[in-house]
Nucleic acid binder design. Structure first.
Length: 702
DNA sequence: GATCCTCGAGTTCT
DNA sequence: CTCGAGGATC
C-alpha cells in the first residue's frame, strides 16, 4: 500500500486503491515491451514470437484500462491513438536543421574536392596527416528532429524550412523503431537532447503496403520516400500507426545536461546505446582515398540494401574540427553529401510510338525527353499495351516519373497529375498497322492488339528474321537489326531461306558493311548450317513455341518429318502441349509457304544430327533458377552447363525448384527462394555438383 | 472453375 | 524482369 502511494496521486481515490502489484506489473510489462520493440525494430533480432509479444501487450492494455492512473507517456500503448489534428502546430528549431551541401561531381573527385577544401580551410599542408571522417549513408526519407526530456520522448518535428517545422509528435510516437524512453543504463538520461534522423520506409514494407492499398482499392504510392512522407503527414495518427515506418538517427540538435563525446562517431555510438537505430554501414575513414573506397563499396551494395539511399555523406569526425570549420551561410563546411545517379527522374512524354513485333503484336512505346536516370540516358520506355496506358493514364505531353532501379529496364512509374498540360492528348491504338497498313485486330477479352498483315508486314518479316538469326536460334553472328533492315527494304530477302542464297558481293553493297564484315557474315551463315533440331524448330518462330517447347518437340519426335506429320492428338499427347499450342503448330506446318521455306533451308545445307539425344548427367531431374551475376560464367553459359548435365532451368522460383543459383546483386528471386526454403548455390557449388562424379579435383576450375 | 506452374514474348542501353 | 496466357492439377 505504501509502495502503491508512490505510483498514484493521493488526491485520486481510485489511485489510492491501485494495488502495488498492478503498478509493478505495469512497469515490468512496459520495460519488457520496450526491450522487445528495440530487439525487433532496431536490432532486427527478436527473441519472442509475435504471439508472446501480443500477449504482453494485451496484458498491459488491460491493466491500463483497469487503472488509468498507471498510464505513462512512455507506455507502448500510447504509440497509437490520439485524435486527428486540425493541422500541425509549428515548431521552432533552436538549433536549425541544416541542409548539407551536395557535391555535384559524381566521380571519385567529389571526395577529393571535399577533402582538399577541408584541408585548405584548416591551413594544412601535404605533410600533415590525413583527416578522419565519418562516412555514412544518405537515406532517402524525411528528416525529423526528436526531442527527449529526461529521457522521455516529448516532441517530434519535421525539418520544414530548417528554422521552423511541424509538430508531428503523435505520428512519431507510432514509429516502433523510435524508443519512447531512452535507455541510459545506470546513468541519468540527458536533461534534454534533440536527436536528428531520417524516417523512411523499407522497400519490402513499401511493396506490402502498396499491395494492401491496392487490395483495399485505395491509392498506391510511387516510391518508399513518398510513402513515408505521406504517412508522416497524416493528421490522423491512427493512419500513421498502420504504416510500416522505420527510422535511423544520424545527428544531434540542441543538447543540455549531457557531456558530448569528442567525435561524431562516438555520438552515433552513444545514440545506439540509448536504444536508437543507427545504420551499421557507417565507417570512420582517413583521407580522400578511403572516402572514395567507401563511396564505391556502397554503390555496389546500393541495390541490395533493404531501403533506398540517394548517396553517402562525409563528415569531419572530430567535433572540435567541425567547430573550427564552421558554416558558410546555412551549410556546414565540415560535411558534404555525395549523391549517386538518381534512380528516378521526372521527364515528359513527347510522343507515343507503336512498334510491331515478330508476332504482329503492337506495343506502344513512350518517347521521352532524354533524362539521365540510374546512370544512363533514357529516351524510351515501353507502355506494354492499351490497358496499361489507361491504368496509368499516361497522355502525350504528360510529366511522368521514370525509374530504372535494380532491374535495368526503364519504367514509367506514374504520371504527375498536377503538371498535366491543357492540351495533353490521350493515346489511341491505331486502326491500321503503322508499318504495313493492314487492319489491327484486338480479340474480345485479349489485352494485346495485333497487325493482321502477317509476313506481308515488313516489320513482322524483319523481326522473324532477327529471331531466326538470334543467338539462341541459328546463332548467325553479325546479322543484326541494321543489316536485316536493309536486306528487307531492298527486297533482297523475303524469307529465312533467302539468307543462304546471298553472296559476299551482295553484302558488300550494304551500308556499314566493308569487305571484312561481309566475309565474316558469310562465314557465320555457313557455320550456322550445322545446328540441332531443337534450335531449328525454335528458329522457325512458330507461335507459342519457344525454346523449352522446341526442345520438348525435338526430343519427342526425334526428326523434323515426324513433327511435320504429327496430327492434333499426337501433339496434345505430349505433356506441356495443349489445344492452343497444337493448333498453332499444325497451322504453321500446313501453310505451303512455310513448308517451302523449310525445304529450301534444308536444300541450302542446313542439317543436324538426326537423333536428338536427351542429355543425362549428374543434374538429371533437378530444376534450377538463376539470379544475379556469376563470378566467371555468363548466365547463358551456366544455363548451358546445367542443361548439358541433364538439369533444367526455369525462370521463376516455385515449390518444384530444386536449387537457386545466385550470383552478385541477385533480384527478388533470391528472397523468394529463401521464403520457400529452397537451397541456394553459388557458382563454385554448382561446378562442384556437375564435376564431382567425374572429376576428382573440382577445385581446379577457375 | 479455380489455382498453381511454366513458358513465351517484349523490353533498354552501351 | 514482368506480364499474360497456356497447360496441368485439384
Amino acid at each position: 500500500m505504501i509502495q502503491g502511494m508512490l505510483f498514484s496521486s493521493p488526491s485520486e481515490p481510485s489511485g489510492a486503491s491501485a494495488p502495488t502489484a498492478a503498478g509493478e506489473r505495469a512497469a515490468t510489462l512496459r520495460s519488457a515491451i520496450a526491450a522487445h520493440d528495440h530487439r525487433y525494430y532496431v536490432l532486427d533480432a527478436p527473441t519472442v514470437s509475435d504471439a508472446e509479444y501480443d500477449a504482453l501487450y494485451r496484458e498491459l492494455q488491460q491493466l491500463e484500462a483497469q487503472h488509468p492512473e498507471l498510464i505513462t507517456p512512455d507506455s507502448p500503448t500510447q504509440r497509437v491513438g490520439g485524435r486527428p489534428l486540425p493541422e500541425f502546430p509549428a515548431v521552432r528549431h533552436t538549433v536549425p536543421m541544416l541542409s548539407i551541401r551536395t557535391e555535384t561531381d559524381t566521380e571519385a573527385s567529389g571526395a577529393r574536392t571535399f577533402d582538399a577544401r577541408v584541408r585548405r580551410e584548416l591551413g594544412l599542408t601535404e605533410s600533415d596527416p590525413p583527416i578522419a571522417y565519418l562516412a555514412e549513408l544518405k537515406f532517402d526519407g524525411l528528416a525529423v528532429s526528436l526531442r527527449y526530456e529526461a529521457g522521455v520522448l516529448v516532441q517530434g518535428a519535421t525539418r520544414g524550412d530548417g528554422e521552423t517545422g511541424e509538430d508531428i509528435t503523435q505520428n512519431i510516437r507510432t514509429v516502433r523503431a523510435i524508443p519512447l524512453r531512452l535507455n541510459s543504463g545506470d546513468a541519468p538520461p540527458p536533461a534534454m537532447i534533440e536527436i536528428r534522423g531520417e524516417v523512411y520506409m523499407r522497400r519490402a514494407d513499401f511493396e506490402r503496403l502498396n499491395d494492401r492499398q491496392r487490395a483495399a482499392g485505395e491509392k498506391t504510392f510511387v516510391n518508399p520516400r513518398n510513402s513515408a512522407a505521406g504517412s508522416l503527414r497524416q493528421l490522423d495518427s491512427n493512419i500513421t500507426a498502420k504504416r510500416p515506418l522505420s527510422f535511423f538517427a544520424y545527428g544531434l540538435g540542441e543538447v543540455t545536461g549531457w557531456k558530448l563525446p569528442e567525435t561524431h562517431g562516438e555520438v552515433l555510438d552513444a545514440l545506439e546505446r540509448f536504444g536508437l537505430p543507427v545504420d551499421k554501414h557507417r565507417r570512420r575513414v582517413l583521407g580522400a582515398e578511403e572516402l572514395i573506397a567507401f563511396h564505391q563499396k556502397i554503390a555496389e551494395l546500393r541495390d541490395a540494401l533493404p531501403f533506398d539511399i540517394d548517396g553517402v555523406v562525409y563528415k569531419a569526425d572530430s567535433l572540435a574540427l567541425q567547430q573550427r570549420l564552421g558554416f558558410v551561410t546555412r551549410e556546414p563546411r565540415w560535411a558534404v553529401a555525395h549523391k549517386y545517379p538518381a534512380q528516378e527522374q521526372f521527364t515528359t512524354v513527347q510522343h507515343i510510338d507503336v512498334q510491331v513485333g515478330r508476332t504482329g503484336r503492337l506495343t506502344p512505346v513512350a518517347k521521352l525527353a532524354p533524362v539521365f536516370v540510374g546512370g544512363v540516358t533514357v529516351t524510351n520506355a515501353t507502355l506494354h499495351n492499351e490497358d496499361e496506358i489507361r491504368r496509368k493514364d499516361v497522355r502525350i505531353g504528360d510529366t511522368v516519373i521514370v525509374r530504372r532501379a535494380g532491374d535495368v529496364i526503364p519504367e514509367i512509374v506514374a504520371v504527375v497529375a498536377e503538371r498535366r498540360p491543357e492540351d495533353a492528348c490521350a493515346f489511341e491504338m491505331p486502326r491500321q498497322c503503322p508499318v504495313c497498313g493492314s487492319a489491327v485486330i484486338r480479340e474480345e477479352g485479349e489485352v494485346d492488339a495485333y497487325c493482321s498483315g502477317e509476313l506481308f508486314c515488313p516489320s513482322q518479316r524483319k523481326q522473324a528474321l532477327l529471331h531466326f538469326a538470334g543467338r539462341r536460334a541459328m546463332d548467325i553472328e553479325g546479322l543484326g537489326d541494321k543489316i536485316i533492315e536493309q536486306l528487307v527494304d531492298k527486297a533482297m530477302v523475303q524469307s529465312a531461306a533467302d539468307l543462304y542464297r546471298l553472296t559476299q558481293n551482295d553484302f558488300a553493297g550494304l551500308d556499314r558493311m566493308a569487305e571484312k564484315s561481309a566475309a565474316n557474315l558469310c562465314a557465320a551463315l555457313e557455320k550456322s548450317k550445322t545446328t540441332t533440331l531443337d534450335r531449328f524448330i525454335f528458329a522457325l518462330g512458330v507461335r507459342h513455341v519457344g525454346e523449352a517447347t522446341a526442345r520438348d518437340l525435338a526430343r519427342h519426335f526425334g526428326s523434323l518429318e515426324a513433327l511435320m506429320n504429327a496430327d492434333h492428338d499426337a501433339l496434345t499427347g505430349i505433356s506441356e502441349i495443349g489445344g492452343v499450342m497444337a493448333e498453332s503448330i499444325l497451322s504453321f506446318f500446313s501453310e505451303p509457304r512455310n513448308r517451302n521455306v523449310i525445304a529450301a533451308l534444308r536444300t541450302a545445307g542446313i542439317h543436324w544430327p538426326e537423333v536428338a539425344a536427351a542429355a543425362t548427367g549428374p543434374l538429371t531431374g533437378l530444376t534450377f533458377v538463376l539470379t544475379g551475376t556469376l563470378p566467371t560464367m555468363s548466365r547463358d553459359e551456366a544455363d548451358r552447363r546445367i542443361v548439358d548435365a541433364g538439369g533444367k532451368v526455369t525462370g521463376s522460383v516455385s515449390k518444384k525448384t530444386s536449387y537457386v543459383l545466385a550470383g552478385d546483386a541477385p533480384g527478388s528471386t533470391l528472397a523468394k527462394a529463401q521464403a520457400l526454403r529452397i537451397p541456394v548455390l553459388d557458382e563454385a557449388a554448382l561446378l562442384h555438383m556437375i564435376e564431382q562424379p567425374v572429376s576428382k579435383n573440382a577445385q581446379a576450375t577457375s
